[in-house]
Simulated assay, not measured.
Amino acid sequence: MPGVHKPSVLIATLATALLAGCGSGDSTVAKTPQNTSPAAPPPAAPSSVSAPSSSPAPADPCAVDLAAPQIAKAVSDLPRDPRSGQPWSPEPLAGNYNTCADISAVIVKANTNAEHPSTRAVLFHRGEFLPQSVVDTYGFSGIDLAHCTGDTVALQNSSGIPGLTGLVKFHWNGSGVEVVGNTAR
């Protein structure tokens, strides 16, 4: 039965012809362009020295913070300026407010367009507003940081009148605020 083997011989012949036609010159691998760029360096081995972090350092809770919400809250609780009848601006002109000091202060001005608005000091104990601290804290224009400590704040009184410009120190005595010094400049 010579005809019985013919289809299998035919299939074998075709398979051989196909395989012969797919030499190395026709393969997909041979037609794919080769990468000519240099190889990437291997990843660095971990070390005990860490790279600098791009995240910011945590805020210092004892740093001066003139944008603290406690300031705006305290200023909103103040009675209006007796001279202009206006409320006080919550943005301090000067200050050393922080939550760690026994006493700190901010200077605010009346919320008016007057050329020389009234100013006053607002005192704090460990970040808490001291509403009954000192009866008259009007007229202070700044803080003398060189004379401030954790329990004493030195406020500048600049009236513009010679001999009436001075420095007034307020001290936290453990239970309240007392005036400990008034120096004319």
Rank of each mutant, 00 (worst) to 15 (best):
L18V: 11
S50Q: 13
L164E: 10
W172L: 04
A101L: 03
A20V: 13
T28K: 07
S24C: 10
Q86K: 15
A72T: 13
A121T: 01
D102I: 02
A72F: 11
S54R: 07
D26F: 10
M1G: 10
V4D: 12
V135L: 14
R126N: 05
T13F: 07
K6C: 12
A39Y: 00
S8W: 03
Y138I: 01
P92D: 05
S118V: 00
Q86L: 15
Q70N: 03
D81T: 12
P7E: 05
G181F: 12
G139C: 09
P162Q: 04
H5G: 13
V168F: 06
Q86E: 15
S104Q: 00
P33L: 07
Q86G: 08
G139R: 08
V64N: 04
V177N: 03
C62G: 15
T16N: 01
A121W: 02
G150M: 06
P52N: 02
S54Q: 14
S118W: 03
A12V: 11
A39V: 09
L155R: 10
G174T: 15
Q70W: 02
G23R: 06
P2Q: 02
S55H: 06
H125Y: 04
D151P: 07
D136G: 07
P58D: 01
G3L: 13
A15V: 07
T112Q: 06
C62H: 14
V9Q: 07
S8K: 09
